[in-house]
Computed example of a mutant assay.
Amino acid sequence: MGRRIVELLLGRGESVRFMARGKYPQVVALGAEGFQGDLRDPDAVRKAVDGVDVVYHVASLAGYWGHEETYRGINVDGTRNVLNAMRQCGVRRLIYTSTPSVVGYERDVINGQPGIPYPMRHKSPYPRTKAVAEQMVCDANGKDLATVSLRPHLIIGPGDNNLLPRVVERALAGTLVMVGDGTNKVDFTYVDNAAWAHLDAADALKDEKSPAAGRAYFISNNEPVLLWDWLNGLLGAVGCPPTRRRISYRTARALGGLMETAWTLLPLPGEPRVTQFLASALARSHWYDMGPAQRDFHYQVRVPLAEGTRHTAAWLRSHFKIESPVT
């Protein structure tokens, strides 16, 4: 999504500087200024934001398993470094990329509103640290800094390095298992829509009194679908067999708890195949109301889900070198 934001900004004639841990010569070739650095380095962050008008903070450590301190260092301490650097350099607008998982998946969320409270306890360090960072961003809104937090849900599209490639890998290996009864609805966000939401929010964030200032918003394609029906349709379009194996939500949660204990106490290499957090995300309904984002910064869906799904399937086929889809 970060690359897509850069492309959209360049496309409308803006000067763009991006900061990342690695080098991205393809993005620089588009006309952006590249800056290599780590969010955990305050000096690097300060140099990166000095002289800019608006910061899009899209970097984070995502996942459903890992060490708390690693997630905290990037998601919390890194965000604190961004806020401090912006204050020191006089940068007035921050668009922060959060996640719907900050409000959890322990219960079904139907047409969820921005005011859903954070849970008392998160089941994973990723949503826990993202919730802390999001609250920091919203609290930072004031006369010298206007902030808004966006929660794009399940981003799909070309270049995905986190979500759907893992699903396809498991499908190809025959290890993908449906969790729950298959009736849970979710909404996805095509990457172009997620990127445009950031630009829309920045355009509307004139100062700390703007309607969106200091608030958090869910972002999606606004087309809830049955998760497992959609996934099996995508797998067929990619060239993978659909998943037929099924496990109950209760069993998956129990297995997740056992695996979390084993990986924590032994510890074992890699990550568990299932955790309590992942089981809930795969079995529960979670889709959200786009009304607040449409009202406060005129968010709109530019690419419908069917079109975004086709683009995503084509990219996944190329990524995994699958010649043709299953017919």
Rank of each mutant, 00 (worst) to 15 (best):
V109A: 01
A213E: 03
P25K: 06
G233V: 03
L176C: 10
G180K: 11
M290E: 06
G104L: 03
R215G: 03
H298P: 01
H153A: 09
G51P: 08
M178C: 11
M1C: 07
A146K: 00
P269G: 10
V76W: 01
V301G: 11
H311P: 00
P42I: 01
A44G: 11
W230A: 08
I5S: 01
R170A: 14
G270Q: 07
G159Q: 07
V167Y: 13
G256R: 04
Q300V: 08
L61D: 04
M120A: 13
L265A: 10
G78F: 08
D144R: 01
V55Y: 06
T309F: 05
S124N: 14
P158A: 07
C240S: 12
G78S: 06
R253G: 01
R302M: 06
A293L: 10
Y249S: 11
H286V: 01
S15C: 00
T312H: 08
R317Q: 14
Y96A: 00
G104H: 05
K143G: 09
V76E: 04
K123T: 12
L30Y: 10
W228G: 09
V179H: 03
E223C: 08
E271V: 11
D187M: 10
R121Q: 13
P100M: 03
Y126D: 05
N81H: 15
V54R: 02
Y64R: 05
G291T: 15
E223K: 12
L268D: 04
Y71M: 00
A252E: 05
G90Y: 02
Q294V: 11
W315C: 05
G78K: 08
D50A: 15
R302N: 12
Q300C: 11
V303K: 09
F297R: 01
H311E: 14
L10P: 08
A131T: 07
V82S: 08
V49Y: 10
R244T: 15
T189C: 14
G159L: 01
P325Y: 05
K23P: 00
V167W: 12
P304I: 03
T264M: 03
R246T: 12
T309V: 07
V179Y: 04
L150F: 12
D160C: 09
E68P: 00
V6G: 00
W196E: 13
D43M: 02
Y64H: 13
R302C: 05
E169L: 02
P267I: 07
R92N: 00
R40K: 13
L83P: 08
D192L: 13
I110F: 14
R46F: 03
V225A: 07
F35A: 02
P165F: 05
T175H: 10
W230K: 03
